[in-house]
Design a protein around this nucleic acid. Sequence first.
DNA 1: CTAGATGCAAATTCTTTGCGGTCAA
DNA 2: TTGACCGCAAAGAATTTGCATCTAG
Lengths: 144, 144
Amino acid sequence: MTRQRRVILEEIRKLDCHPTADEVYEAVRKRLPRISMSTIYRDLEALCDWGKIQVLEVGCSKKHFDADTKDHYHVRCARCGRVENLPVQPFSYLERAFRDLCDYEVIGHRLELLGLCPACQKAKEYREAAEGIIDIDEVSGEEV
Amino acid sequence: MTRQRRVILEEIRKLDCHPTADEVYEAVRKRLPRISMSTIYRDLEALCDWGKIQVLEVGCSKKHFDADTKDHYHVRCARCGRVENLPVQPFSYLERAFRDLCDYEVIGHRLELLGLCPACQKAKEYREAAEGIIDIDEVSGEEV
DNA sequence: CTAGATGCAAATTCTTTGCGGTCAA
DNA sequence: TTGACCGCAAAGAATTTGCATCTAG
């Protein structure tokens, strides 16, 4: 456990928002200004191997990292990409239910809710209100 | 609907295995040898926009494409990455269940089973048998 | 002292974009 | 005829790798 790995782990725990590799980089860089992106990636992988963190492959673009290694579900905001935990135990019956419905040997499952976080709900309400009086193209700058 | 789009759609339907962009490319190239990767990507996007196909963001690396646009679940092989359909209607109660458990406005969910496809189950059995007589490193050339 | 970790730069992989030429309505 | 589409090449974004150097044990 080197200095950079310790700092990386601490920052992921502190951020608690399921950061991506570059969000970790930005946070760690404040404490270790000379750290490089490759160290971030290599250490994130090492921390995964040691079971200190886990990777979330939400959506398909960037990987998110989670200091909570217990099995749990997530909600993802469809607009800003924010990821948060859902406070329930995973439903193991889902795996049992599918065991007889396919010829795969089922070894796990992943459930992800998709939604709008509170901030983006507000933004949406604002946009809908604005569309009533302004031309839509004027305000629909953001993508979903 | 141009020639290349028609061929792309036909090949995705024919493949029926949730191909990735480059698998589509390889298949289409047999019929349209001069087609380019950018056309593949652009036409895949257009076909999505028109609701002719849908994208699956399984795991986190490549996108897979599916000619079946009805909402449905998938199993993914943890070893070879193969993706197949699961023959059930999505469980809408999952979204209702989580509505009160988080402050997100829930707009959808994604459930993905993880397992070993029949071919990889066989490979695994073979490997386990082999490990009894050969040094593990000799046979564990494949990655999960 | 030495194996393993780091920083830097360059390479990979997947996907997107700019642009001049082409095709179908 | 003309706007949408195509192929090619180059650009981007995320991640990985090669290598010389450094550092913790």
